[in-house]
Design a protein around this nucleic acid. Structure first.
Lengths: 197, 197
DNA sequence: ACTATCTATATAACTATTTATATAGAGCGG
DNA sequence: CCGCTCTATATAAATAGTTATATAGATAGT
């Protein structure tokens, strides 16, 4: 499971479940999300399996926290995950499933509406990622090519997000243009159409 | 759940679970996969919920099959799914999670190896999609802009796949180039480095 | 006849994920 | 002091998805 390995990667330095969830919210969330209700039992299982160890620590703000560290075994598991090569993910993209069936709507205007909303969402996400990039660039003059390895690879994932979203936006625009052409065409030839003389 | 709605979309014409699985394998699989062991109980539940109806039919090649049709209620559910707007998917991309942590490998050559494998996989998938596109174009002279609506939207999803994979390949090449620069640089300045005079 | 493959359905066991809920201390605003 | 938010952990219940396995008729090849 990828969550296990992601937690191992994040546990480069010891952290509590709550802190790990924050790591997800900051950078990782764009390609992998996890809820606390999934993180806590996973950490417990991984400790049971000897991949992690934990100790309780008093907290200045709130109840005591359980801080996890990865063990030698955990480090090996992370290493193995990385050198085994890319996991070909069962990439589920639900909006494409919707697009696939848009032709079954009685009115193409509803399909246009759909693609317009998708375009807006992608534009928003692209703006978000650009904001993150700008922030990184501002606070570190070494951005992007003089960054330490530790930050180079996360930066690559951000770059992938930017490139995919740019491609997605381009696709939306192209699709909307083609759909509108199609709507105009259908409008003009209402009735006759189809077969030539 | 998206699987429910996908099945409703596929059931434009009545079909058995086995046949629906084949529909997945042909076109849909690139952005949504499903196993028979998931499809059968889902069809059962949807029938119980009144979204589908079924009847048994003798088969010429094998045991009798249960053929499902969507009900009026099922059609409404599909319609609602489409007009509600794009589902923002929790898009999980496990290879990006791996890339994120590649800096924790002791040897950057292993990271290069990883990105090379990813590049190869993407190139293969891109070739596959291009093959599908070529097949469609060959068997239908209306491809792509004179296709009936029914085929226009599936064709758009194929196009999205092509564009995303092209972006992905570009990213791999760019990342490999930058990683190799980085490796050369590290090699040259073994020891001194960092601070200027 | 034997074997493999394809059609066809189904279930059990397991793993993963989401949503809802409970608990409890600490700090802040009104 | 009351309610709100944040820190912090945890569990229950439900849903979703994967892997393994069982059954059985039909057809094609050896």
């Amino acid at each position: 499971m990828a969550l296990d390995h992601i937690l191992l990667g994040l546990l480069r330095r010891p952290a509590s479940g709550y802190a790990l969830k924050k790591d997800f919210s900051s950078s990782l969330q764009h390609f992998w999300a996890a809820e606390l209700a999934q993180i806590y039992p996973t950490l417990g299982r991984m400790e049971k399996d000897g991949l992690l160890s934990s100790r309780q620590q008093p907290s200045d703000k709130g109840p005591p926290r359980r801080v996890y560290s990865r063990t030698r075994k955990g480090e090996r598991a992370l290493h193995d995950w990385l050198v085994q090569g890319p996991e070909s993910d069962r990439n589920r993209i639900s909006y494409l499933a919707q697009v696939f069936f848009l032709g079954q709507l009685d009115d193409l205007a509803a399909a246009r509406q759909f693609l317009g909303e998708l375009r807006d969402e992608m534009a928003t996400r692209l703006a978000t990622l650009k904001g993150i990039e700008a922030g990184w660039a501002k606070q570190d003059p070494r951005y992007p090519d003089e960054l330490p390895d530790e930050d180079f690879f996360p930066q690559l994932t951000l770059r992938m997000g930017l490139m995919k979203l740019a491609a997605g936006l381009e696709w939306c625009d192209e699709s909307l243009r083609r759909l509108e052409q199609r709507m105009t065409r259908n409008h003009k030839q209402t009735g006759p159409a189809a077969a030539g003389p």
